[in-house]
C-alpha cells in the first residue's frame, strides 16, 4: 500500500500544482457539452425520423421520405462512431471547405449517430401507443402531425424513457473517443496528468470514478422524470 500512497500523492501534486484540475474541468465540461447537445440533436432527429417512418404510405412523398430515413438509420448504425468522427472531420469538412473545432464535430456526429438509434427507440414507442389514440385525434379533425405531437409522442416518450436513459448513458461513456478528432474530454485530461507524472494507475481510477458518478446522477434524474410523467398512470 505504501506504493499506492506515493502514487496518490504524486497524482494530487500534478492535479493541483500543475493545474491538472483545469484540464479535468475543461474535459468534464466538454464531455457533458457533447453528451447533452448530442442527445438534444439526437432526440430532434430521432423523433422526426420515427414519425416519418410511421407515416401512412399510400402517397408518394411519405414513401420517398421513408426510404431516405431508412438509409440514414442504416448508415449511422452500420458504422462505428469513431469512423464517423474521422470521416466527418478529415473527409467531409475539407471537402466542404469548412472549419470546425473537434468539440463541434463531436456534437454533430454524436447527434446524428444517436438520432439513428433514438429513431428506432421512438418508433417502437409510437407503435406501443394504442392506435385508437391517433384515430380519436383524427376523428376530431386534428391533423396527423398535431395528433402525433400532442397525443401520441407524449405517451410514447413515457413508455420509452428508461430506454432513452440507457441511450444517454451510453452516449456519455462513448464521448471518450472524441480525442480522435482533437477534442479534449475527460480521457485527454487524465491522460495529460498521467503522462506528466509517468504514472497512470491513479488518474485512470479517478477518471472511472468520475464517469461512474456522472452516470449515477443521470440515472437519478431520469427516474425523477419518469415519476413525473407517470402521473396519468394508474400504476404509480
Amino acid at each position: 500500500m505504501n506504493g499506492f500512497g506515493a502514487k496518490w500523492e504524486n497524482f494530487l501534486r500534478i492535479f493541483f500544482e500543475y493545474k491538472g484540475y483545469e484540464k479535468v474541468l475543461e474535459g468534464l465540461g466538454n464531455t457533458l457539452l457533447i453528451a447533452f447537445l448530442g442527445m438534444f440533436i439526437g432526440l430532434l432527429i430521432g423523433t422526426l425520423i420515427a414519425i416519418v417512418r410511421v407515416l401512412p404510405r399510400y402517397k408518394v412523398l411519405p414513401r420517398i421520405l421513408n426510404g431516405i430515413a431508412t438509409f440514414y438509420v442504416e448508415l449511422f448504425r452500420g458504422t462505428p462512431m469513431v469512423v464517423q468522427l474521422l470521416l466527418f472531420y478529415y473527409v467531409m469538412l475539407p471537402l466542404l471547405g469548412m472549419h470546425m473545432t473537434g468539440v463541434q464535430v463531436a456534437i454533430w456526429v454524436f447527434g446524428l449517430n444517436s438520432g439513428a438509434y433514438i429513431s428506432e427507440i421512438m418508433r417502437g414507442g409510437i407503435l406501443s401507443v394504442d392506435p385508437g389514440q391517433m384515430e380519436a385525434g383524427r376523428a376530431l379533425g386534428l391533423s396527423f402531425w398535431t395528433t402525433m405531437v400532442k397525443i401520441v409522442i407524449p405517451q410514447a416518450v413515457k413508455n420509452i424513457l428508461p430506454t432513452i436513459g440507457n441511450e444517454f448513458i451510453a452516449l456519455i461513456k462513448e464521448t471518450s473517443v472524441v480525442s480522435f478528432v482533437g477534442a479534449s474530454d475527460l480521457y485527454v485530461a487524465f491522460n495529460y496528468i498521467g503522462s506528466n507524472s509517468y504514472e497512470f494507475m491513479v488518474p485512470y481510477l479517478v477518471m472511472a470514478a468520475i464517469y461512474l458518478v456522472m452516470v449515477i446522477l443521470i440515472s437519478i434524474l431520469i427516474k425523477q422524470m419518469e415519476r413525473s410523467l407517470r402521473r396519468s398512470d394508474r400504476r404509480n
Partner: peptide, 19 residues
C-alpha cells in the same frame, strides 16, 4: 380534417387521450 370537425365519432374502446 376540415370536414371531420363537423362529424363526431365515438369509439367502442372510448379512446380518450390518456395523457
Amino acid at each position: 380534417d376540415v370536414h371531420r370537425r363537423h362529424m363526431g365519432m365515438v369509439f367502442q374502446h372510448f379512446n380518450l387521450f390518456q395523457n
